[in-house]
Design a protein around this nucleic acid. Structure first.
Lengths: 149, 149
DNA sequence: TTCCTTTTCGCATAAATATGCAACTCACTG
DNA sequence: CAGTGAGTTGCATATTTATGCGAAAAGGAA
């Protein structure tokens, strides 16, 4: 039966997109209800072939996700690429980057034209972000930290 | 040190997008070279927070991959949604679907206007695809099977 | 058919990942 | 300050996933 595998993988796709399946063993049990009996080992192989990945919310397709980097807004990209450390100091925020990363990161922040940012000063591996007051600094910090994830 | 975690996750992002990291333990060793010492357990938590998933090619971001379904060409979507089984018979191809799935699947195939397809007939849960000859049938079969993955 | 090659799959187990729990650190509060 | 609560981490271990290998099945060729 050549179509056995194809059929099974079709079912897997269907199951996985419709409900939350969080382990291969759970998937195995669901398939058994459809009268498909296979081992976890086979499912491990199937999932790889189908490019389904395990997430906190169950298995999901990963068809097209090569370079998310190229599709991100500039600041998000810069933060992901350069921001190594971030520390608050009153109304200031000190950002650390790898050598040479400060200028591009500062430029990206400037580019956002956030009203909370009074200005930035970039050295080689450090950016100083100046906010009018602590409250503003906290907000900037929050936004940057959100971008990291 | 509140920024410890943030810093580490920044490094993880950087590492993972630049090189191929295939296990948490490997990631742990790479981080150690940067003088970041944490256990695999912590990395497991970090990866989840960063929404990085394990793929055959290493860890990858899963930020934007909610509904691939909506962005797929119609046939690919229909195949994924409805095609349960596929069996060749000379110059014919018999496709099985869940009840009611045959019409939409057949419509999607028709929509492709493949020259190898002489025509289709759709019942309730079965589609018959008619090809001019075996060779053409094989080609259609191949394309459909490719779409499954 | 019969023989050969390729693919699929289970078994057993290795490898990798997730998590309950307790320790520790901060930031605050009374 | 002591006390409280939230957040972070390591440890130990449970749970989950991957894989080497051999058996069986499928697909072709002659």
């Amino acid at each position: 039966m050549r179509t056995q595998k194809t059929y099974r993988q079709g079912q897997i796709l269907k199951l996985v997109t419709n409900e939350r399946v969080t382990s291969q063993d759970e998937l195995r049990r669901r398939l058994r209800q459809l009268n498909l009996r296979v081992t976890q080992a086979t499912l491990s192989r199937d999932l790889r072939e189908l490019k389904l990945v395990k997430t906190a919310e169950g298995y999901k397709p990963l068809s097209a996700v090569p370079e998310e980097t190229t599709s991100l807004p500039p600041l998000a990209r810069a933060v992901r690429e350069f921001l190594l450390d971030l520390r608050p100091a009153q109304n200031l925020l000190v950002l650390k980057t790898p050598p040479g990363g400060a200028q591009p990161l500062a430029a990206a922040i400037d580019g956002e034209r956030w009203k909370e940012v009074a200005g930035t000063i970039a050295g080689d591996d450090t950016v100083l972000v100046i906010a009018p007051h602590r409250r503003a600094r906290a907000e900037i910090q929050r936004r940057l930290e959100d971008l990291i994830r």
